[in-house]
Design a protein around this nucleic acid. Structure first.
Lengths: 203, 203
DNA sequence: GTCCACATGTAACTGGTTACATGATTGG
DNA sequence: CCAATCATGTAACCAGTTACATGTGGAC
């Protein structure tokens, strides 16, 4: 239940229409909570029905006609409640790690190229974050609000740094693996039950 | 579409019943791709229908009666295909960062305690990973398969390390924030539209 | 024989994704 | 007037979550 609260936050920062929100989600908030325009419109409808936001008056509600929303007191209260409420961190879910685990069983053929691609993508994202930091948080005094925004950006930077380092390390490992690039030394369709219990980190 | 492949991987490592899989997902594979028993049973049904796995013979299929599965050649082939196929990393989605962003607008009241709690949880997870590393990957020679497993574990360790460091840093920042613990200097229900465009990292 | 843990499953719901539909505005 | 683009929306689907249902076998 985070998307409505992401939208409330965005609307408090600046009242916007659905498409404007979509654009803003593509940039700042979307860095850690992405959403498509369909999701956003659906959620805007719900939030309006619940009395958490309202369409700015002075605009006729018609299809194809832009409609801006602002947050109502009830919406702000709900956001405060949610922000302060305890929430468990949800467990990591990463397909790339899963593929590595699969590769330990069926071979690493074809994986290396995609690891390189991921490395490039994470390097690009890291560069983008650093650019934002340079532009919006030059060394010096931050307002308290900015301290929080900077803290969030730092999380992004550190996470991308982690990924680039880990992927670089992974690629080094791959270089030294039997079969090397494109191989892995595994047959393509051995009988299924041929694998014994190789359980090293599985216990 | 990762859960079926997670299951195929687990079953190749060792043929298992639904409940065994659930247990194993709670430990190793679940560290980066968790699943409940309901998901697993549903997916086992689909995989069997598609001819990717089969129930081990010698067991009557009855409710309440354990039923073990093994991977068929078609399933192994599918897993190989999936492992080698390019996949985009899916964008980060983290509710805690979202809450921080919200806190920049509605105040940080109540957040600090949960940050502390998250820090404890991540510290515990980190310790658990380190324990596994000590036990399963003592310094020395790794088999090629183990090199991959160790690489995956390293990702977990480095990620938890990042979170513990970042959360510690965040808590230091909080200590110096106006209003301090429990405050934030924000009213609880100011009029909704009172917020101007404070857009520092929003552009 | 009853209770409890084991084991497999069903049903309903929620949130996110993909594909498509429709109206308004603007530049040529 | 036509095409392109802006803007809002609908529908169908898929994966994950929560709550519940049912059967088996062993301990007491």
């Amino acid at each position: 239940m985070s998307l409505p609260h992401a939208i409330l936050t965005a609307l408090l920062e600046r009242p916007s229409s659905g498409l404007e929100l979509t654009r803003r989600f593509d940039k700042s908030i979307g860095y850690f909570w992405s959403a498509t325009h369909q999701q956003i419109y659906r959620e805007l409808g719900k939030l309006e029905a619940e009395g958490h936001i309202r369409a700015l008056p002075s605009q006729q509600p018609a299809r194809g006609q832009r409609k801006s929303y602002e947050v109502l007191p009830a919406g702000r209260a709900e956001l405060e409640r949610w922000t302060a409420a305890a929430q468990d961190p949800k467990p990591l879910r990463d397909a790339l790690l899963l593929r590595l685990r699969a590769a330990a069983v069926v071979g690493t053929a074809g994986l290396e190229g995609d690891l390189r691609r991921h490395l490039r993508l994470h390097q690009r994202q890291l560069e983008e974050y650093r650019e934002i930091e340079r532009r919006d948080f030059p060394p010096g005094k931050d307002a308290p609000q900015d301290r929080l925004h900077h803290l969030i950006l730092r999380a992004g930077i550190d996470l991308e740094t982690f990924w680039t380092q880990w992927l670089s390390h992974a690629l080094e490992e791959f270089a030294g693996l039997p079969g090397g690039p494109g191989g892995g030394g595994e047959v393509t369709d051995g009988t299924a039950s041929s694998d014994g219990a190789r359980t090293t980190p599985s216990r």
